[in-house]
Amino acid sequence: MPVMDGRELRIVGFLCNWCSYGGADTAGVARFDQPTDLRIVRLPCTGRMDPLFVIKALLSGADGVLVSGCHPRDCHYSEGNFYARRRLEVLKQFLPVTGIDPERFEYTWVSASEGQKWQEVVTKFTERIHTLGPAPVIADAAERLKAANLG
C-alpha cells in the first residue's frame, strides 16, 4: 500500500452498531490489516445518520467521510438504512454545490459477518482519499457551519 506511507489523512467513519461496526470488529478479530487513517463513530443505525454530520466533518477539516450500514432489507430496525440510502444519495448530488468534492464521501453496506469486505472497503476508500490528497482548506468554513446551525 504505497500511497498509505507517510502522513495519515483524516477519515471519519459513521457505522451502524448492528452490522458494519460488527463487521469492523469481525475484521479486527480476524486480524485483517487495514490502513490506520479511519476513525469510527458508532451510531445505533444509519437511519440516525444526519447528512449534516457529513457536511460538518468535511467543513471541519476531514479529508474523507465513510458511512456504512446493514445491507438493504437487513436493517436491525427494519428500514433505517432505506432512509439512510435516500438521504445520503441526495447528499452526494448536493455536495458539489457546497464546494466539496463528492469523491471525499462514500456510503456502503457491510454486514457483521463480512470482515473481509470491511477490510476491502476501508483499504479502497483510504487509497481513494490519499489519491485525492489532503482536503483544501475552506476559508469560510466557520461561517458556513454557523449557517447550517452546526457551529
Binding site: 463513530v41 451510531l43 445505533p44 443505525c45 440516525r48 447528512p51 454530520f53 433505517g80 432512509y83 452546526l150
Partner: peptide, 28 residues
C-alpha cells in the same frame, strides 16, 4: 432507539438520548 426520527425532524426537536446531535458532533 434507531434515531430515524431525529434526522427526520426539521426542527431538531426530537433527539435520541445517548446519541444526540450534540454528542455525535462532539465526537466529530
Amino acid at each position: 432507539g434507531c434515531g430515524i426520527c431525529s434526522v427526520t425532524c426539521p426542527h431538531g426537536a426530537i433527539q435520541l438520548k445517548h446519541f444526540t446531535d450534540n454528542q455525535i458532533l462532539a465526537e466529530v
